[in-house]
Amino acid sequence: MKLLHVHSLPLKDVIIDLAALFKVDYTRNCGEYSVKIPSTWGTGSIKGINFQGGLGLLIYDCNFNTDVEIHFTVNDIHPLKFLYCLQGKISHHFENHTDEHPLSNYQNIIVASKGNDGHVLKFHKNEQTEIYSLEINRKLFKSKMACELGKAKPNLQEIFNDDLGDKSFYYNGLYSLNLAEIFEEMKNTNFDHLIGKIFSESQSFRMLTQQLIQFDDDSNEDADRIILRKAEVSAILEAVEIFKAELDMLGSISSIANRVGLSGNKFQNGFKTLYGKTANEYIQFLKLSLAKDLLVNTHDSIQEIKYKIGFNSHSYFSQLFKKMYGVNPSIYRQNYLENKKMNRSQKDYK
């Protein structure tokens, strides 16, 4: 285990301290500071940038060749930290406390220490790790947002109002799909200088906005939560496979949501986010697509096809099919067979 003790704020000084501990130079690009991890420690980099209004961002993209603990200890109130794990895993604990807060892929935690207690981040040996740490100086943030904070919900005020560190704060959850998209944009977009600084600042405030929306959503009962988490996408993909496998005998949407472990509201909202249509619209699309395939690839009667895809009403089936394909099922089959016969005749003629 290797220990790194950082005794500085703001974030530019954190990077300068880390560079000195690694015994390497740091780089500065206007207000963004970064340090490359030397090969004796591992690979990757750590970079930090401060914005106006008390907001800052640290990005860890590293793979250490031994277990590493970074101790952030400074004789001052520490920033409020929003930590997101995009890859790998770490653990966090408060200085002078042993209770660890694990953080792994798709998870996020919000932590604030009591008094001048610091923070400890533990990185695991040979673990490719990508962590975003959004850091807020609550005193500066409060001075900028005093009116708005005074009108905010009590659960949101609780996060920011304790700028003297009277008590510690800890929250954990799965970060939302919207946050995942912000991280992807930040990783895959590269602007220089002016545009780059504005982009990073705007993305950091977007990150904070989505986090507060998620935090507020998490204060609701499970059944009333509607924001889709990145980790819950797999549950919706599992539901799609159920749709395809059981198309002729599907249960209710709520029963399928329950089978994959999601509330009805979260399932419906998440499905619309992923597919751009409701679950019922998607099921209808699957049924009509299957009906089209059966019309052209089997000799099944339209009555048999209708039952195979789970429709009872012939007129309703024909109405939906015509809306999607422009003609009713019998005409679609007839047109297909005529075109097939014509193509065969043209091939024989040649």
Rank of each mutant, 00 (worst) to 15 (best):
Y132M: 03
D248G: 07
R225H: 04
D13M: 06
E32V: 08
G264N: 13
T129K: 11
I283S: 04
V260H: 06
Q319D: 02
T278A: 00
L179R: 04
Y33T: 03
P329H: 06
L288I: 11
L194I: 15
I198N: 10
Y84S: 10
H314F: 12
P79K: 03
F285D: 14
S45C: 04
M145W: 13
F94Q: 05
L11F: 06
R344A: 12
Q87V: 07
S104I: 03
M249A: 13
Q268G: 09
N96H: 15
F243P: 07
H299W: 09
P102E: 02
E304M: 11
T98N: 08
N161L: 15
C147S: 14
D13G: 01
V14F: 13
D216V: 07
D192N: 04
S8K: 15
L177T: 11
K322C: 05
Y175F: 15
I331C: 08
V68Y: 11
Q346P: 04
W41R: 05
D224N: 07
K167G: 05
N269S: 08
S113K: 10
A257F: 02
I37C: 12
I302Y: 05
S289D: 14
Y275I: 02
L250G: 10
I236C: 03
D17V: 09
S168D: 13
N258L: 08
E69C: 15
S318L: 02
L9Q: 14
L320K: 15
V24R: 03
K12N: 13
S91I: 09
A112Y: 09
I77S: 10
N220L: 12
I242H: 07
N328D: 10
Y336C: 08
Q334I: 09
S301Y: 07
L262C: 00
V233I: 15
K36Q: 12
L149V: 05
E135W: 12
S330C: 04
